[in-house]
Design a protein around this nucleic acid. Structure first.
Length: 576
RNA sequence: UGGGAGGUCGUCUAACGGUAGGACGGCGGACUCUGGAUCCGCUGGUGGAGGUUCGAGUCCUCCCCUCCCAGCCA
């Protein structure tokens, strides 16, 4: 292991926080730095006061946060170590809607984090906004996580030792925390009416200032407070913001610190209806559920200092935070339901494979040592590297989903157990779509369907493709008109006979291959008198499929097999 | 407006201060049946201007652009 390096910022007038990576003992600003010729001993400190010239006052450099990480590839994160079993992460959606891609992404990264570091993945429903609840949403979210392959270890449905996992069933915990804050003077009752708050907002906007609560009720005298409580004036509890916010080291964005007291009014933590706001509830629950790491969307980055103030006020140790980049709509705004169909259920219905959906999700925002299409969950977990999560917002391009689906479907076909499942799935689909049109029950045989799957793998994005009209020839005997045939050639009978003979010649237990058949078909075409090869092939295609499009003729023949081919060409002969 | 986070081909993503690459998309060519298949090739990017440096996508400054937060929503 290296000895400590000595680092100096390349711009001497600036100071910046640094942090020792406790695992590999290297220092990192995450940015390019010069090595000092003259060593200056650095302590394991959050700040670097150069030459002591600033009177001990802390200053911070605005670093490009994407690089505020350890250089060493041996270390996955910034100075964080995990004891086995210590990691507890949570996905905490609000059941005000169904699971969409943004939620899936956040859940997925939490799941991967838990599995990588031997921890637990917790699902917690944050149903504190009772007015916006959607019935069935909580159940559906949990169903969709199961479908996607990222099941929670603790959840409303499955339970766990830190339950309940519905916030609406934990209200007394938040009230107690709020009471505690009031007792210690860290929070206070606010009796301001909604009208007053509206007025404040309007005044601020009118005079070009930032709307914020003016913290007026901070200054109520005890007798005023008592009087209002006696009169049962509706009130909320507000948290008293303070200056002197400690910096925190975000897993993704690196060192951050926001002086919230200077730009915001005291936030409500307990609403008039007795329900908490997000700020209080998530702090209380993460503490009581012993959550070690909070991975959430980067829209919360700026609220983190506020949450850390709450932790401090309650005397609790905060978790490590990591903020995941925003997913965007095509117009560039934060992903939301206004823009297209982004719900997991609709992907499920349209045939997306869960592993393809997860795979494509990880390509937006990265966080892995390498990126390639087709990774499975085990690979995602193995290659996960939080220091490589990108910080910029990004568009999750769903136009790529068919490509991801195709590759993952290919992997399923290549796996014996999953292939069996696909065969059964396809059997059901064939019967649903074609039902009584199926003339030959052999098309439902596993061997036949397996052969079709192997031939089409890499070419189809979804199993349901195979029951579409372009593949109907696989399941039902096609129809075509005699006119279509004779328009191509006057030798259709002769060609049909040639094909039948070809099939007879190949019946001796020999497996058909596409390459072999291609050669045979060229030979066959030479036995016609006045029909071009191209037209011979079109006739054969028509006889086999009734279509003018589709897989190559040779592949169609390999799919159908000699006896079915013979049958179809006998029908050509019988048309006269 | 105030505070914050960002900016690499059309999209996503690589590149220890040392060759700007990959995937999808797009275009072209080749295919003795169709082409939407396959194979081959090409295209296309560091937002702009300065500075530091032997060397800048990377470090610094300014400008431009985008997003997020500033609910008794989460």
């Amino acid at each position: 292991m290296l000895l400590s390096s000595f680092i100096h910022c390349s711009t001497p007038s600036r100071c910046f926080p640094i942090k020792t990576c406790t695992r590999c003992c290297q220092y990192s600003t995450g940015r390019s730095v010069r090595i000092l010729d003259t060593p200056v001993l650095l302590k394991n400190a959050l700040t670097f006061n150069r030459s002591g010239g600033h009177g001990g006052k802390q200053q911070y450099m605005r670093l490009k946060s994407s690089r505020k990480r350890c250089f060493s590839s041996e270390c996955d994160e910034v100075g964080h170590q995990h004891e086995h079993g210590d990691v507890r992460v949570r996905f905490a959606p609000s059941p005000t809607g169904f699971l969409h891609l943004g939620g899936l992404r956040t859940a997925l990264y939490n799941y991967i984090y838990a599995k990588k570091y031997g921890g637990s993945f917790i699902l917690r429903m944050e149903d504190t906004d009772q007015s916006r609840l959607v019935p069935g949403a909580a159940e559906s979210i949990e169903d969709m996580l199961e479908w996607a392959g990222i099941p929670p270890d603790e959840s409303p449905r499955g339970g766990g030792q830190y339950g309940p996992y519905l916030q609406s069933q934990r209200l007394s915990l938040y009230s107690q925390a709020a009471d505690s804050l009031v007792q210690t003077g860290k929070a206070y009752h606010c009796f301001c009416s909604q009208q007053r708050l509206e007025l404040l907002k309007r005044e601020a906007l009118r005079s070009g200032q930032t709307p914020r609560y003016d913290n007026r009720c901070r200054h109520l005298r005890p007798d005023q407070l008592e009087e209002k409580l006696d009169q049962k004036v509706p009130h909320v509890i507000r948290f008293r913001l303070e200056s002197g916010v400690e910096p925190f080291n975000d897993l993704v964005f690196g060192w951050n610190r926001h002086e919230v007291a200077q730009v915001e009014g005291d936030p409500v933590v307990l609403k008039a209806d007795g329900f908490p706001t997000y700020h209080l509830a998530n702090v209380v629950d993460d503490h009581l559920m012993k959550v070690s790491h909070v991975l959430r969307g980067s829209e919360w980055l700026i609220s983190t200092s506020k949450h850390l103030l709450l932790y401090r006020a309650l005397g609790w140790k905060p978790p490590v935070f990591g903020h995941l980049p925003l997913l965007l709509n095509r117009d560039g705004s934060k992903l939301s339901k206004r823009q297209g169909d982004i719900y997991i259920q609709s992907f499920q219905r349209s045939g997306a494979l869960p592993e393809a959906l997860l795979d494509i999700t990880t390509h937006c925002g990265s966080g892995f040592n390498s990126n390639r299409v087709g990774r499975k969950m085990e690979e995602l977990i193995t290659e996960f590297n939080p220091s490589k999560i990108t910080t910029h917002s990004a568009l999750l391009d769903l136009d790529k989903l068919p490509e991801f689906n195709k590759i993952h479907l290919q992997q399923r076909i290549d796996d014996a157990v999953q292939r069996d499942w696909l065969v059964r799935d396809l059997q059901v689909r064939i019967q649903e779509v074609y039902g009584t049109q199926v003339q030959d029950q052999d098309v439902l045989q596993p061997d036949y369907i397996t052969r079709v799957l192997h031939l089409r793998k890499g070419h189809i994005s979804s199993v349901s493709d195979l029951v579409s009209s372009e593949y109907s020839y696989l399941w039902v005997r096609p129809s075509f008109s005699d006119q279509q045939m004779t328009a191509l050639s006057s030798e259709t009978q002769h060609i049909a006979t040639l094909v039948i003979r070809l099939m007879e010649g190949l019946k001796g237990g020999e497996e058909l291959t596409v390459d072999q058949l291609s050669v045979e078909l060229k030979t066959l075409a030479k036995k016609t008198s006045n029909t071009k090869y191209r037209d011979v092939m079109k006739i054969i295609r028509l006889a086999l499929s009734g279509l003018q499009q589709g897989p190559s003729v040779a592949e169609m023949m390999v799919s159908l097999g000699p006896s079915e081919i013979t049958h179809r060409f006998n029908r050509v002969l019988q048309q006269h």
